[in-house]
Design a binder for these strands. Structure first.
Length: 583
DNA sequence: GCCGTTTTCGGCCCGACTGTTTTCAGTCG
């Protein structure tokens, strides 16, 4: 009985994501029906308009007032909100088998072709499609042929085997290696890694390299003869598509070769996002100009080329919009040079790292030397606490001894400060791993969850709140515990955590480890809006992992973080006042 | 389906590539 009631409730209380999903489903169904492409994209545009608006749906009284949403879609959105469903989607679901939807993922198959397969061969899902291919029926259709049929069979074989997107961490070795290779090719004038990698997305589909050269033929030849290649997908005059293997990860990589005069516009084009490009092209159109990857063309035929992206943006009266902000949201109106978006050079400290005292690979001294070389002014050593036995967590007694070593080391340096610290576990019952008598001696106490991820949201929130309310706890590390693509993390009521963090003055971490990136850009934005203090740290367990800071900065920039919001950009004495003020 | 200082029709971001064709539709980024 209780269950049924909650079901009714959830039906009428669709959240924003549900509505966006429903609109996307409508678009996909219409695509397969072979509807007018502009009608299809109208539903996607409507979803974008809703997403772009920061308000929750309950506060948007009349969706049709948003640009991109008219009477029709507004009616559908209201139906979804009030009834939890809409007749259009219900009819589409009745009319079209939902087994067709995943087929859109097969390369080479779009709505039109799937529609044909459905109508003429009664294909309804991956299984029936395979049978039709094997029976040789597909190659008989207009617009299909032997090659298409073969490619579909191969794609069906691969379907589900490989993830859609790779985590940033998985493509880093490839990105690093390919940059070095390109740098050694003489015929290349300049190159840059574009795409979602450049925008700092958490996951990427492939790597896109933009290359300027006068000799694309030779460069192309050199590219296809590199190591690590498992397959040459395409090899044309301007584009080379490869698959390369690093460890057990297969990374798809595209190389685009253009003349140097087009480098900036091509880089912009392939950095995207697609939605950002649409905004830019609309802007150009209003001025009777046309943007393509090769340049900007006036309707008189005059062509403009730019040597840098800065010049390209300036042509439209815009400041240089950093890649991390190019998501087709409100960046064109909202960003200007006065916005103090956090930069790598703002970082003065790394406040979360491990040493051989717990599960790190290097000594305190080695970590300190690398941090000093990076130009930081201060840092914190934060090994694991007693509870984390697998990580050789420190007993109170060992912690004390470690801090003596740190104090001695500190005295030997004039221009650099090491804060004593600890990454203390929040235990499953909500208590903390050390008593206050121990904590009150520590400069920088991080609290974090490494256990009992399966607990209810309420129990998890009790644990996190309890930690925030302890006066010695300065920061919550990796607040959701997620591992990108591998583990969802424990259930957090993030809105609530932001409130408690704000109220208690607890810093929340942006953990820069590419497997974590926790908090995500989306929550960082909300945290900053609420006035929560943040800190970007690497959680390094080896000295080379201290380099992850650059990835954290990218994620922070995606969250529009300002320098002032991030406490490890502050001078050491100001930071010290912050962590000691409540005790 | 949405939009409008070209405002109720006729456009909608642009170009490359592929496999199918015999001049182009469909897909992709």
């Amino acid at each position: 009985m209780e269950e049924k009631l909650s079901e009714v409730n959830s039906m009428s209380q669709m959240n924003k994501k549900d509505v966006l999903n429903a609109l996307e489903r409508i678009a996909v169904y219409l695509e397969i029906k072979g509807e007018n492409a502009f009608r299809v994209s109208a539903y996607r545009k409507a979803a974008q308009a809703l997403e772009r608006d920061e308000r929750p749906l309950s506060e948007i009284e009349d969706p049709s007032k948003l640009k991109g949403i008219g009477k029709g879609t507004a009616g559908i959105i209201n139906d979804l909100l009030e009834e939890g469903e809409t007749s259009l989607l219900k009819e589409l679901e009745k009319e079209i088998p939902d087994g067709l939807l995943p087929l859109l993922k097969l390369p080479g198959l779009g709505g039109k072709k799937i529609g044909k397969l459905y109508q003429q061969l009664e294909v309804t899902d991956a299984g029936t499609l395979r049978k039709a291919c094997e029976a040789g029926q597909v190659q008989e259709l207009d617009g299909f042929g032997k090659k298409t049929e073969q490619k579909i069979l191969e794609a069906l074989e691969e379907l589900g085997k490989r993830p859609d997107r790779l985590a940033l961490a998985q493509v880093l070795p490839a990105a690093f290696d390919l940059r070095q290779r390109l740098a050694s090719i003489d015929e290349i004038e300049r190159f840059e890694l574009a795409g979602s990698f450049r925008r700092g997305r958490e996951t990427v589909k492939d790597l896109d390299f933009i290359i300027s050269t006068e000799d694309p033929k030779t460069v192309g030849k050199r590219l296809v003869s590199m190591d690590h290649i498992t397959e040459i997908i395409g090899h044309g005059d301007t584009k080379v598509s490869l698959e390369l293997q690093y460890g057990d990860i297969i990374v798809p990589v595209d190389f685009r070769m253009v003349k140097d005069e087009s480098f900036a516009t091509t880089l912009h084009h392939f950095t995207g996002s697609k939605d950002h490009n649409v905004l830019m092209r609309q802007l150009a159109k209003e001025r009777d100009e046309k943007i393509s990857e090769y340049g900007v063309e006036e309707d008189t035929g005059t062509e403009h080329h730019f040597s840098t992206e800065e010049e390209f943006f300036a042509h439209f009266g815009l400041p240089y919009i950093p890649p991390e902000l190019r998501e087709g949201m409100d960046e064109l109106e909202r960003y200007d040079e006065k916005y103090e978006l956090i930069e790598q050079d703002d970082i003065r400290a790394d406040l979360h790292m491990h040493t051989t005292w717990s599960d790190g690979a290097q000594s305190i001294k080695e970590m300190v030397n690398v941090c000093r070389d990076k130009g930081y002014d201060y840092m914190a050593i934060t090994d694991h606490s007693e509870y984390l036995k697998v990580a050789n967590g420190l007993t109170a007694e060992r912690l004390k001894r470690q801090h003596e070593e740190i104090r001695e080391l500190n005295e030997s340096m004039k221009d650099f400060t090491i804060f004593t610290g600890v990454e203390m576990d929040i235990l499953p019952d909500g208590t903390l791993d050390y008593p206050d008598e121990v904590l009150k001696e520590v400069d920088f106490v991080i609290a974090s969850i490494h256990s009992s991820f399966q607990q209810s949201e309420r129990k998890i929130m009790d644990r996190l709140e309890n930690a925030c309310r302890n006066p010695h706890v300065a920061m919550i590390a990796h607040p959701t515990g997620r591992l990108i693509g591998r583990r969802k993390g424990y259930p957090v009521d993030m809105e609530r955590l932001l409130e408690v963090a704000k109220e208690t003055g607890t810093i929340l971490e942006l953990n820069a480890n590419p497997h974590r990136l926790d908090l995500s850009a989306e929550w960082l934005k909300k945290a900053q809006d609420k006035g929560v203090k943040l800190s970007i740290n690497t959680d390094a367990h080896r000295f080379d992992m201290l380099d992850y800071m650059t990835l954290g900065i990218k994620t922070g920039r995606r969250g529009w973080l300002k320098q002032e919001t991030v406490v490890n950009t502050w001078p050491a004495d100001r930071f010290k006042k912050l962590i000691w003020k409540n005790r």
